[in-house]
Design a protein around this nucleic acid. Sequence first.
DNA 1: GTCTATACCTTGATAGAC
DNA 2: GTCTATCAAGGTATAGAC
Lengths: 220, 220
Amino acid sequence: MLSTMTSTGVRSAGTEPARAGSGAGGTDSATRAPESVQRLIEAGAEAFADKGFHATTTRDIAARAGMSPAGVYVHFASKEDLLFQLSLRGHQRALEVLEAARARRAAPPEQLADIVADFAQWHAEHFRTARIVQYEFPHLSPEHRDVVLRLRKDIDAIVRGVLTAGVGSGDFEVPDVPGTTLALLSMTIDVARWYEPGIRRTPGAIGTAYAELALRLVRP
Amino acid sequence: MLSTMTSTGVRSAGTEPARAGSGAGGTDSATRAPESVQRLIEAGAEAFADKGFHATTTRDIAARAGMSPAGVYVHFASKEDLLFQLSLRGHQRALEVLEAARARRAAPPEQLADIVADFAQWHAEHFRTARIVQYEFPHLSPEHRDVVLRLRKDIDAIVRGVLTAGVGSGDFEVPDVPGTTLALLSMTIDVARWYEPGIRRTPGAIGTAYAELALRLVRP
DNA sequence: GTCTATACCTTGATAGAC
DNA sequence: GTCTATCAAGGTATAGAC
C-alpha cells in the first residue's frame, strides 16, 4: 500500500522517500488526476510537441493551463519531471497499442498488417504525444531515460517477433530481421513528424497504406 | 559595393542586398572560410546535433571553437544565423548527393538503388549534419525556413521522379507514389537518428541494405 | 492548492579596449 | 578580429500569504 506518489498520483521525484496513504483525508482521495493536473499534462504535451522541451518555458506551460507559474510545481517536481510523465505515458500507450494489435489475430501476415496499421495510425492521431515520445527522449534525465528505454526495447521486440514468426512460418522472406524491424519502425514513427491535422490523408488511411507497404517489404 | 557582410562572407541577415567583390582588400580576399569560421561551424554542428538548438548556448559554441562568447558575433549575426548556415549547407549537400547518385546510371532500378544507398550512407556518415537538417529545421526563423524548404522539396522531387520513371518503364509497381516516396525518405532519414559511430553496421553496409529494402518495396 | 512576489541564475547579445 | 566586461531579458524554481 505504500506509494511514492503524491495524492495526485503524478509527482515523481526519483530520490524521494515513499509516502503512505492519503494523509488526513478521511474519504477516498485516490482520485487519479485532478483537473488541474490534467490541464497541465495537456498544456505540457502541446507545448513540448510544438516547440520542443528546451524552447518551452514553465511560464508558457502554466499559461496554457490557466495557472500561475508557481502552480506547476505543486504537481510536478520540475519541468523535466513533467516531460518524463508525458514520455512515460506516451511510451506505455504506444506499447499497449502494439500489443493489442498483435493479439488480435494469429497469423504473421495479419499480425504485421495490424501492428503497422495501428502503430502508424496512432502516430498520426496522437502526433503530439508521439513527437514527445520520439524527439524529446534525449532530453530526459539519464535516470528517466533508462526507465523509458525498457519500453522502447519492448516496442522493438514486438515488431521483431512478428517478423521472426513470419520467417519461421514461411510467410515472409526477410534477409535482415533487425534491419527490417528498424526500417519498419522508422517509417511508422516518422508519421508523427510530417502528420498534421487537416492533411489530405486520414490517420486510418495512413495506417492502411503503411500496412500494405510493410507486407510488400517482406513478401517472398 | 557597399556590403553588410563581413569579410568572411558568412554573415547572413536575410533582408540584406547581394554583395559584390571583396571590399577593400587589394589581394584576393575571397578565401571562403577562415579558420575561425570553420571552427565555429564545426563547433556549432557538434553542439546543435548533440543537444539541439535551444539547449545549446552561444558560450558552449564559443568554448568548443576555442573562442570567447563575443567572438561568435564577429562571424555570425546571431545563434539562429549560425544554425541557418549549417542547415543550408547541409541541405545543399544532401541534394547534391542525391543528384549525383541519380545521374550515375540510367535505368530506374539502378537509380533507385543508388539514391537510396547514397542517401542512407550520407545520413550515417554525416549524422550530425543530417540531424541538424532534419531535427532543427523547425527552429529556423520563418524566413530561413522558407529558403531551406525549397531544397527539401527538390529532395522529395528527385525520389518521386525516380519512382515515377520506374512505374512508367514497368520496372516498379507502386500503388501510391507520393506515399512511397515519403516512406522511403522516412526510412533513410531516420538513419541519422539511430546511427552512431562504432555501431555494428558501417555506413556503406547500411546504404546497401536500404537499397535492397527499397527495391523490395517497389518490385511488381 | 492557488496566488503574488521574487530570488537567483543563465541567456543572447553588445561596448569598447587592444 | 579577438578579448574582457557587462547589460537587459528571461529562465527555473521557491517563499509565504491566503
